[in-house]
Design a protein around this nucleic acid. Sequence first.
DNA 1: ATGGATGCAAAGCGTTTGCATACAG
DNA 2: CTGTATGCAAACGCTTTGCATCCAT
Lengths: 171, 171
Amino acid sequence: MSNQSGSELEMQEVTVSPVEKFREFLSTRSKRLTQERETIVREIFADHEHFDSDQIVSRLTQPGRDGGRVSRATVYRTLRELENAGLIRRVARSNDREVYEHDYGYPQHDHFICTKCNQLVEFKNSEISDVLVKVAAEHGFRMSGHRLEVHGMCSDCARPPVRRHRKLDMI
Amino acid sequence: MSNQSGSELEMQEVTVSPVEKFREFLSTRSKRLTQERETIVREIFADHEHFDSDQIVSRLTQPGRDGGRVSRATVYRTLRELENAGLIRRVARSNDREVYEHDYGYPQHDHFICTKCNQLVEFKNSEISDVLVKVAAEHGFRMSGHRLEVHGMCSDCARPPVRRHRKLDMI
DNA sequence: ATGGATGCAAAGCGTTTGCATACAG
DNA sequence: CTGTATGCAAACGCTTTGCATCCAT
């Protein structure tokens, strides 16, 4: 549940790959791009889905995995680095877990969270940040970013069950 | 840190006290308003500050406390009930802890969170929910609420340190 | 070679829960 | 009375950390 989301947003033109970007970040802090870190970055950027720590851990610690296995501890340590590097960011809390998404090569957007099916749906609206920048300024606040979750029911869950699946109900 | 905030927002006219409101809620679910629960509600609604579970726990479990001591487990159990009852709500995450605030008798608003001093500042702006309702509708989403954190630097922290505390710097 | 990184298992930390006892309705 | 609620301590689930070993630079 709570994934699929297949992004209606378009990918931005990016010059360097996530791995390269990460390597650059690491070098500025005299840290190293190890095989484990590269494995994790490739896994995360293989698609554009939202994810949480445990999903990555369970994929990368599987017994006969090609491309290198990585320990749970290293996944956690690397996720934190990737966040610091600006490659990923935490977007919401779902089921008491922090949900991450790509923050590199992906345009700013916000999320609907369906209170019934837990689905995360992205949406983009420039008015929101316009208003926020304005309001922040009015309060002497220098905005650097925001985190917005809109709660409610998605179209599927909101639709009344009436006269749907009539035939199916008779099976 | 991260409190004080003394709300510039005005209190709404409320007819029933939080305790009464809670009693009503509980009775509809055949639950009871115990002394412990009443103690917790009074403590929480004694002021309008933001708070987290641990703050309430440490206040209510102090050795020689008048007005009744309450166990840690009961505080957690009651906070959840108060959330269900709509008396409080979670507004943000700060220092890996869930921050609560009153949701009863208090108008809808959002928060700035200073990335430097961690201060939470409330602000009210009707345009935001107007935009959200509209955007939600466009996506077939039936909005029931939202959670918005605006990150950045508050006026105090953003102000350049130049010629401030000149004397203090020399201590 | 050498300081940073990994893996493992143990420790942390906020939160939840099982169970015997204590009360609100 | 009877079903809820409390308190305590143990259990949980996610995340972090100590330490010996390993490896990118």
